[in-house]
């Protein structure tokens, strides 16, 4: 991690109002290439709102975004996607009836354009999907398998493969392990490490300290819609991070632990 260089994606002074409610107040954010950032905070702390601003679903009321050193404005998720910011949804957002390879290229099918339609090159789509899965070390029986036949962990892997199929530079994941069986969590976290190795910036919202301390390089905490804490993982510990979620700093490990049930 080279924090001296300008960050890959940056948010400066972001404030977001929903009517009378202030969801985010003057929030600063940054993430670097090849960095895995854990975002923590209590429900309503503004994590999801911030992620939706980064992925173009919401526009900030104040403040601005900077991508690769240039100010950017995302009027829709499509624009964010076009410059390489992808979102992996908590419920995977896959079409269970379609095979793996079709899910990966859904909406961006390879083929020949003929008068507004694309005649899909299925062989090429299969080949590309297989190569991409291999690159991410994701093993499936066949790219022709319908997604509904997959386990939760495999589905999450396909969702991540879809997000990264077109040279994503930033992948935002909302609770990537919340819907998974325990034994599958490790595989998904390893996949996040693989993404990092390919230079992708990963932003992960999670409530699970195990996940954050296994896969992330840095953790940032939001509290009541504002920046609360930000630290490299090596300089903090679980109990301190849990304290941040509760909005407490400088408590003893014992006290922070006592506050969590």
């Amino acid at each position: 991690m080279n924090t001296a260089a300008s960050p890959l994606l940056e948010a400066k002074g972001v404030t977001k109002y929903f009517g009378a409610i202030t969801a985010l107040r003057n929030v600063n954010f940054h993430v670097n290439s090849g960095e895995a950032l854990g975002v923590v905070g209590d429900n309503g702390a503004g994590k999801s709102t911030l992620m939706k601003i980064l992925s173009g679903l919401y526009q900030p009321s104040e403040g601005h975004l900077i991508f690769e050193g240039r100010p950017v404005h995302f009027s829709s998720p499509r624009i964010a996607r076009n410059i390489g910011i992808e979102m992996v949804y908590q419920d995977f957002a896959l079409a269970g009836n379609l095979p793996i390879y079709e899910n990966i290229y859904l909406g961006r099918e390879p083929g020949i354009r003929v008068g507004g339609l694309t005649i899909i090159d299925k062989a090429k789509a299969r080949e590309m999907a297989q190569a991409h899965l291999d690159k991410l070390k994701i093993h499936v029986k066949s790219v022709d398998q319908p997604v509904e036949e997959l386990s939760g962990g495999q589905r999450q892997a396909v969702a991540i493969a879809r997000a990264t199929a077109f040279d994503a530079k930033v992948v935002i994941m909302d609770e990537p392990t919340a819907a998974l069986a325990i034994k599958e969590v490790g595989k998904v976290l390893d996949l996040i490490k693989t993404l990092k190795d390919h230079g992708v910036a990963v932003i992960m919202i999670s409530h699970r300290m195990d996940d954050i301390f296994y896969a992330c390089d840095r953790v940032m905490a939001l509290f009541h819609g504002a920046n609360f804490a930000d630290s490299p993982l090596g300089k903090t510990n679980r109990n301190e991070v849990i304290g941040w979620i509760m909005g407490t700093k400088d408590h003893t490990a014992q006290l922070a632990h006592d506050r969590v049930h």
């Binding site: 499509r78 419920d91 957002a93 896959l94 079409a95 859904l106 909406g107 961006r108 694309t118 899909i120």
Partner: peptide, 24 residues
């Protein structure tokens, strides 16, 4: 079966939300 819109029709039937977030 062979055009993108045809596959989008199937995707909408499978999971409209997935189709939407895929930019359809």
């Amino acid at each position: 079966n062979r055009t993108n819109m045809g596959r989008h029709i199937f995707a909408i039937g499978g999971n409209p939300q997935a189709a939407r977030v895929s930019g359809i």
